[in-house]
Design a protein around this nucleic acid. Structure first.
Length: 500
RNA sequence: GGCGGCGUAGCCAAGAGGUAAGGCCAGGGUCUGCAAAACCCUCAUACGCCGGUUCGAGUCCGGCCGCCGCCUCCA
């Protein structure tokens, strides 16, 4: 597989250090709030990379941090009149919930910054001993100019940085150089603090990632990931402090996903142009959100819009309609034992190429959009085959369905059972937008709908179409869609957002 | 100013120097009591503009135009 490496600014063949094992680290949340749909892109990108590496047979050791001590957490605690710890705990749990809503698999290791304080102190001491850090009034700073490779990841040089920084921020006169960054911050009154050789304080902004990566995965990672906005300063600083300490590369591949735009600008909390990921999932459904991202290359910037999400929703529906049809057909009758016709042979030969096509796209720097093109083509061609070649060998249809399932797995798509989707969606929404009472009602709603559908069916049988149509229209207004098929009437929920 | 990226049909989007994937919309059809849904078909002489290299260029090179990100809060 080839991956674009930010460090070399090239696509390179990815080979892990140890055969068959991938050590991967990706930046996780700072738990001061729920995460946005823009944050979701990063989490999802590395979820898919991880899933695909596993699909290819690698054992993936994946670490993601939870930063549970930071300025914004402390501020939020002050604003709410609760402790920073309470805020962090609350949003850590919220992170787990929202992650599950998106179908993101938990990493192998998920350390929290506050659990790592002794190791962080040890790490900083190592830097002090090597002359890469210095203490001022209980703060500890990293001596940027001492690390000669500083800027190699972000492509910056020290002179330009110094020139740029001088106009933008007040240089702290206690620092030897304006570019030096904090490894350890002295505690202010009332703030959470830990004992250290330099007095009471807390970790700086970048240190926890370096320490967690080393503690869980070792000195050199195969892949270090995150959003492009983290390249500088976060990852540059991580790289500097880790490599200064160990003398070894922190990561062989640096992988960065593109940003999410809204209204022509980067989506960001401070700009107010954001939406919470969970709200978008509630409105459009989990797989539509995943497809929305995976239909675009992970490194490109992309626009967020409900229109685009609704498009993804329609595309997801199409695949499930296909699976429903295929799996119903597959169950119907045994496969014919007769020799295959030329059309069947041709289709069979095509099916045999699909998996390789899919992998070829994914191997090209995780081209999920190209890979999805392969899957949609499979859907279309199978539908055509089903329609134009009759009778046909059903085992070929089954194989097509299996391919969608199998190749959908590394994308985290198309894994649900078509027949229970309405139910899953319903209870999922009830959980998101309402409390326990609604959840009980939600459990009965399905039966109520079935009852109405049944009554309407009897009316139709008697030719009383006016009343039957009224039931259908009223249910439709409620977001419940009826379809009269040969074997009876099926129904499904229509998620909001499609009306746009 | 420095560094990085982007500009492909109505919208979104992939693209391997060799003759434009895919999704959504739209139009036409099949099916249906009528619908809806589903499915099929159609839908870029063309890839921001101008030059160049090449037998051949969205794809490589140069210049220009437009948009975005980063340059110590950020996924």
């Amino acid at each position: 597989m080839r991956l674009y490496n930010t460090l070399t600014r090239r696509e390179e063949e990815f080979v892990p250090q140890e055969a068959g094992v991938v050590r991967m680290y990706a930046c996780g949340p700072t738990v001061h709030d729920r995460f946005t749909i823009a944050n979701a892109r990063a989490f999802l990108t590395f979820d898919v990379l991880r899933r695909y590496l596993e699909f290819k047979g690698y054992k993936v050791l994946y670490t993601q941090n939870i930063t549970d001590i930071e300025d914004r957490i402390i501020k939020k605690g002050e604003a709410l009149g609760s402790s920073a710890q309470e805020v962090a705990e609350r949003y850590t749990q919220a992170f787990f919930e929202d992650r599950e809503l998106l179908g993101i698999l938990p990493p192998t290791y998920q350390p929290r910054a506050t659990e790592m304080v002794p190791k962080i102190i040890e790490f900083i001491q190592g830097l002090l001993e090597r002359g890469f850090a210095y203490v001022v009034d209980g703060d500890v700073y990293f001596r940027v100019r001492r690390f000669k490779d500083y800027g190699k990841l972000s492509g910056k040089n020290l002179e330009e940085l110094a020139a740029g920084a001088s106009g933008r921020v007040e240089p702290d006169p206690r620092k030897e150089d304006p570019l030096d960054f904090a490894l350890w911050k002295v505690a202010k009154p009332g703030e959470p603090a830990w004992d250290s050789p330099w007095g009471k304080g807390r970790p700086g902004w970048h240190i926890e990632c370096s320490v967690m990566a080393q503690a869980t995965l070792g000195t050199t990672l195969d892949i270090h990931g995150g959003g492009q906005d983290l390249i500088f300063p976060h990852h540059e600083n991580e790289l500097a402090q880790s490599e200064a300490l160990t003398g070894r590369p922190l990561a062989r591949f640096w992988v960065h996903n593109g940003l999410v735009m809204a209204g022509g600008q980067e989506m960001h909390k401070s700009l107010g142009n954001f939406e919470y990921a969970r709200d978008v999932v509630a409105r459009h459904g989990r797989e539509a959100v995943r497809l929305f991202f995976l239909l675009r290359h992970y490194r490109k910037p992309m626009d967020f819009s409900h229109k685009a999400l609704a498009e993804a929703q329609a595309a997801v529906e199409r695949v499930y309609n296909f699976l429903e049809e295929i799996e119903a057909q597959g169950a119907l009758a045994p496969t014919r034992a007769e020799p295959r016709s030329p059309a069947e042979q041709e289709f069979s030969a095509y099916l045999a190429t699909v998996r390789a096509e899919f992998e070829r796209e994914m191997d090209a720097d995780l081209n999920t959009a190209g890979a999805l093109g392969v899957l949609f083509e499979l859907v279309r061609r199978t539908n055509t085959f089903m329609q134009e070649t009759a009778p046909h060998d059903r085992s070929l249809l089954r194989r097509a369905g299996e391919l969608i399932r199998e190749l959908g797995r590394p994308l985290g798509l198309f894994q649900e059972e078509p027949k229970v989707r309405a139910k899953v969606t319903l209870s999922g929404r009830a959980r998101i937008i309402a409390g326990a009472e609604e959840e009980i009602i939600a459990g009965n709603v399905e039966e109520l709908i079935n009852l109405l559908v049944e009554v309407r069916g009897e009316l139709r049988a008697k030719g009383e179409f006016a009343l039957a149509d009224r039931i259908r229209a009223r249910l439709n207004e409620l977001g419940i869609e009826l379809r009269d098929k040969e074997g009876g009437t099926r129904w499904r929920l229509r998620l909001k957002g499609k009306e746009q």
